[in-house]
Design a protein around this nucleic acid. Structure first.
Length: 796
DNA sequence: GAGTTTGAAACT
DNA sequence: CAGTTTCAAACTC
């Protein structure tokens, strides 16, 4: 095989002869074309000739890369770069020729190596030669091609005039550069021997040169050599890493546990350049991340990791890795079909291990990332037969689920709603574990199931505790339904309402609430949400949760109602939320005014109990372990967790009640209240002003036998709100009110309209009513004005 | 386990 | 929006 040099020399020698001829000189003097042009052609030719030896072994990728580089470096106008290049080439012709010779030697030495290695060898030599010559990236590449040109010219003995003029200085510089070249070459050879052609040192040199082009080229080649091709493709294409961000790439590689020594060594130049602190990370990455799967995932996370670089030095490395690993697992799972709804098993396992109750911390990490609790938290139930496992997954990955759910939903409203739900739900979950709050248990929707199973600090006497124990005994069964006709696609179904797929323990018939009917489930859910955006929201929310849900912080207790409304309106983010927001604001105000106890959880909508006295699980408030609130329309509320009016139980005037007679708890309350039968009854009737939409706009007074008073045990109250200082309230207590009498006395009511507005009376009529109603006892009591009520009255 | 009660959800 | 019906859980026996 003819060496390119021979061919090249032969060709160039003929050209040199032609150049020597007088005809050529004459033409040269006449032609507007500068002789450089000849050099240019020569250059091109020689460039090809020069690269041919390496190209024998080099991969096409490298060749094309180099050529493209050369083209990009050279100006589009072939003439412009030629002058400096030509000049430089002449100045350094001798050095270059020597460099090329060495380079050729290297190539020859590499001939026994794999083609790739030889290719690298050529690539490696170039920067060094360049470094000695010009130290600029552009000149690097050009010079390597000009080397051959210079050598040809020398051999031809026809130096250009320009080169002749600087021949003396050139020789001095050449001498120096030759030495440097030799040193560099010897370094390369030493490096080859020491590291088995570890190109790290070369990269280091390049870094010192601050030669971006060479840097990129070298790194790419190194990455291709040391990292598996899929990985580098992954990095470059998927991540679309900026090419100029060489540090990022190197960090990625070094963090990766691909683990080869070369990867670590690759990092060294960068470390030497000033990033010393990451060596520990590298080591730990090797320790923690071992599988190939993790390796690639780590690459995907590397960008975020690099971003964290500034912070991570001050943090616990192990913690970081743990978090990353979890996130990575999320990513892996997200590619599965149900991954959008179902958390990956490993993720759940992690969460399960770390915190069974979705602990604040684990949730805290993800909370910022994936807020939300959404559809079918137990979606994994379809794939897992372990109920217990499902439960914990449900809690652990609710945010992930919701996030995916949101992305799935084209309805932005639904998405945002999910997020809201999730945030509040998470808050609830976190608060369940609050040891300080052992009375109020937020057991709601998915949380309800999970909490009841995974551990609930409930009163030992409470029915819920019994239920909890039962559930635990039943291998911690999940929420189960028994739907017969709803196909588990309505809110009747507890599973569906809780965002859970029905699972094995369910006894439902014709159940569609299964992953196989995912589309149906989603569509149904969307329809329901279209009717009621909060349909899947937690039914029980705490005050803080409410604030979170509505995007409002808890109001300072001394805020007036208007201050709260203004604040809420400022903070509201969507019109949709305004209604709920306003309601929350009002309720929060009322609750603050009427129930100074710590704002415990409240039912979202309130209950509507009539016969259970809110003492049985028919009552959603009671079931949720929360007291009734002003939102409730219940009658005869005796909720052990807190009555609607927020009164102390000891102040409550107990009337005979069928419900009480049937309930032990009621008996207890009755007994307790009988002792206080003489206590005058006071009701902060401000409740009535805000408790219900209707009432809000109705009379300020609740006078006389309202439907409520007729059918419930609650004494009706009416306030003389327009009286100065709002200090006197009247309460009508039916003396002879038995359930029968109550019914006979009450105004017509409908089952759902227990809040039918009573006859509107003004203050005067109220007094007349009081006086005329002989069977009733008016109890007047002077009460201490509520501090923030007065401003309210004034404002209104 | 069957029947009843209850109240939320859905429907009109 | 009110009234009614449907539904399934809770409850009782």
């Amino acid at each position: 095989m003819d060496t390119p040099d021979k061919t090249h020399i032969a060709a160039t020698s003929s050209l040199a002869k032609f150049e020597d001829s007088p005809v050529f000189n004459y033409i040269n003097s006449l032609s507007p074309i500068d002789p450089i042009k000849f050099v240019q052609s020569d250059h091109s030719f020689n460039s090809l000739s020069f690269t041919s030896p390496s190209s024998v072994f080099a991969s096409p990728q490298i060749i094309s890369h180099r050529e493209s580089r050369l083209k990009s470096i050279l100006s589009p106008d072939p003439l412009k770069p030629e002058l400096p290049l030509f000049a430089n080439g002449n100045k350094t012709s001798k050095a270059d020729s020597e460099t090329v010779q060495v380079s050729d030697q290297c190539a020859e030495q590499l001939g026994g190596l794999t083609p790739r290695s030889s290719a690298r060898g050529v690539t490696a030599v170039l920067p060094n030669a360049i470094k000695c010559d010009f130290g600029s990236p552009a000149s690097n590449w050009v010079s390597s091609d000009l080397i051959e040109t210079s050598r040809v010219r020398e051999g031809a003995g026809v130096p250009s005039s320009f080169a002749q003029s600087s021949k003396v200085n050139l020789r001095e510089r050449q001498h120096f550069k030759n030495e440097v070249n030799l040193r560099e070459i010897s370094r390369i050879e030493q490096t080859e021997e020491a590291a088995g052609w570890d190109w790290v040192s070369l990269v280091s040199d390049v870094d010192v040169l601050d030669s971006s082009i060479i840097e990129n080229t070298s790194e790419e080649e190194q990455d291709q050599e040391t990292v598996d091709p899929g990985m580098i493709t992954f990095v470059s294409t998927v991540l679309q890493l900026p090419q100029d961000n060489a540090t990022d790439l190197e960090n990625k590689v070094s963090i990766s546990p691909s683990g080869s020594c070369k990867l670590s060594e690759i990092r060294e130049p960068v470390t030497q350049s000033g990033e010393i602190g990451d060596l520990q990370d590298k080591d730990q990455a090797h320790d923690i991340l071992s599988s190939s799967l993790q390796k690639k995932l780590v690459v995907t996370e590397s960008r975020a990791k690099v971003d964290e670089k500034g912070e991570k030095r001050g943090q616990s490395n192990s913690k970081q890795h743990k978090i990353r690993r979890r996130c990575l697992v999320f990513e892996t799972g997200s590619h599965k079909k149900y991954s959008s709804l179902i958390p990956s098993q490993s993720d759940c396992e992690v969460a399960h291990e770390e915190n069974r109750l979705v602990p604040s911390k684990s949730s805290g990490h993800s909370l910022s990332i994936l807020p939300g609790v959404g559809l079918h938290l137990n979606a994994l139930a379809a794939t897992s037969k372990n109920d217990r496992f499902v439960k914990c997954k449900t809690l652990a990955s609710g945010r992930q689920l919701i996030s995916m759910q949101s992305s799935m939903s084209s309805d932005s409203l639904t998405s945002s709603q999910n997020i809201l739900i999730g945030s509040s739900a998470l808050n609830s979950m976190e608060k369940v574990s609050d040891p300080c709050d052992n009375k109020v248990k937020i057991v709601e929707n998915a949380l309800q199931t999970s909490v009841s199973v995974c551990g609930e600090e409930d009163d030992q006497n409470s029915p819920r505790k019994k239920r909890h124990q039962e559930l635990v005994g039943e291998s911690q069964a999940c929420k189960r339904c028994n739907c017969k006709r709803s196909k588990c696609l309505k809110l009747y179904c507890e599973c569906f309402a809780a965002g859970l797929y029905c699972v094995e323990p369910c006894s439902c018939l014709d159940c569609f609430n299964k992953p196989m009917h995912e589309d149906t489930v989603l569509e149904t859910r969307r329809l329901i949400e279209s009717r009621n955006p909060l349909a899947f929201a937690p039914k029980v929310i705490r005050s803080a949760d409410s604030a979170t849900e509505f995007g409002v912080r808890s109001y300072p207790s001394d805020y007036t109602i208007w201050q709260r409304i203004i604040l809420a309106s400022r903070l509201s983010q969507s019109i949709l939320c305004i209604a709920s927001l306003l309601r929350y604001t009002l309720c929060s105000f009322v609750q603050d005014e009427t129930n100074k106890t710590p704002a415990s959880a409240r039912h979202k909508r309130g209950c509507n109990c009539r016969r259970s006295s809110c003492l049985k699980k028919y009552c959603e408030c009671f079931q949720g372990g929360v007291g009734c609130s002003v939102s409730c329309r219940c009658e005869g509320c005796q909720n052990a967790f807190g009555r609607k009016d927020g009164f102390e139980e000891t102040e409550y005037k107990v009337e005979e009640s069928e419900a009480y007679e049937k309930n032990d708890l009621s008996d207890t309350i009755k007994k307790d209240e009988d002792e206080h039968s003489d206590v005058p009854l006071i009701r902060p009737s401000i409740i009535s002003r805000f408790s219900r939409g209707k009432r809000l706009g109705s009379s300020l007074l609740d006078v006389g036998p309202s439907p409520m008073s007729c059918t419930s045990l609650k004494p009706k109250t009416f306030d003389i709100s327009d009286q100065p200082n709002f200090q006197i309230r009247l309460q009508v207590i039916p003396e002879d009110e038995t359930p029968q009498n109550r019914k006979s006395n009450c105004l017509p009511t409908s089952p759902n309209s227990k809040r039918l507005s009573p006859p509107h009376h003004d203050i005067r009529s109220s007094s007349s009513l009081s006086s005329s109603t002989t069977s009733r006892k008016l109890i007047l009591r002077s009460i201490r004005p509520l501090s923030s009520v007065t401003p309210l009255q004034e404002q209104q």
